[in-house]
Amino acid sequence: MPKSRILIVSNLLTIGGAEKLIYELVVFARQNNIEPTILILDNYKVEYYDKIYKEIKVNVVRTRLHNIKHLRAPFKMLRSIYWVLLLKFFTNNFYESVHLMGLYNLYQIKALLKHKHRFFWHVTNAIQCTNGTYDFPSSYFDDERDTIVCINRYQINELIAHYGHALKCNLRLFKLFIND
């Protein structure tokens, strides 16, 4: 029986909190015999976690999904086309679930990604936004099949206070964690 797979989407693999959370998700998935693929968008740099994922043989793909016309780098362009098509039409066939790290990355895939189990991990608080208030469009929260995973209870209060009835998606709380 083929191994289960998940897709994790983000924009960075540097030393940082959101990146550490990706790492812990990867380790947890592996512990449960689930194979993760990490998709890094709009960033072709080699970063801190690249080396670690190479060592533990986790597939990291760096590509872009928008403005993909790149005739001087046809391989990059083909990879972008492949991923746009995959996200749009085939992710349900390949992945059990898709996890986006950081609502600030949601603009990249919200409209494009068609998957029945989309989890958007919310890793910032309102105080970290300009003027201490969220500036995400309310359309981010309009699909009742989506799940926003908050990492602290204050985020839930902040989202409800700011978006109110516009919040159609599921809100879940899950603490920051480390694996044994």
Partner: peptide, 15 residues
């Protein structure tokens, strides 16, 4: 650290 309950919840997100 993850409790067994936490692990079940996280697994339900992933799978």
């Amino acid at each position: 650290r993850l409790s067994n309950n936490d692990k079940r919840t996280l697994l339900s997100f992933i799978k």
